[in-house]
Design a protein around this nucleic acid. Structure first.
Lengths: 72, 72
DNA sequence: GTGTGACTAATAGTCCGTT
DNA sequence: TAACGGACTATTAGTCACA
């Protein structure tokens, strides 16, 4: 899997789970303690996110880190 | 799960899988295209690894990213 | 409610070496 | 074989105004 694709599929998965939870980027950013625009950047695969922030997002979405890599 | 613990458990998991594959840190770093000292830092939870490098290590260990988060 | 460009501070990641 | 150090460069974290 290429580098771009891994970030892209991760971002798509975040967006998918965020919407499933009925959250806006703004609401998720609040729950995850991250900036609103940062969530957007992750969803658009513009940042190579670090493990700590992956964990923050997973927690905010009430899923495990593994779940974020379960094929959508 | 705390930030420190997530990095620590990740590092331990990498070390576990690396040894299971019979690789030294040096050999793994070569396969993953990462620096020798960096692998050591990850295993000792001293660095907050990025998603791209998580994927590189997973590939070098012949496992999926999900496998790296399977409780050992 | 989200995308985007620009920006600074912080840290990821490399490279040299020694223990 | 691996831990650890200092110094260094590249990249991410994190925020903002505005579209």
């Amino acid at each position: 899997m290429s580098k771009e694709k891994i970030l892209k599929s991760f971002g798509e998965r975040v967006r998918e789970l965020r919407k499933k939870n009925g959250l806006s980027q703004d609401e998720l950013s609040f729950k995850a303690n991250l900036h609103r625009t940062y969530i957007g950047m992750i969803e658009r695969a513009e940042k190579n996110i670090t493990l700590i922030n992956i964990e923050k997002i997973a927690a905010a979405l009430n899923v495990t880190i593994k779940d974020l890599f379960n094929g959508s």
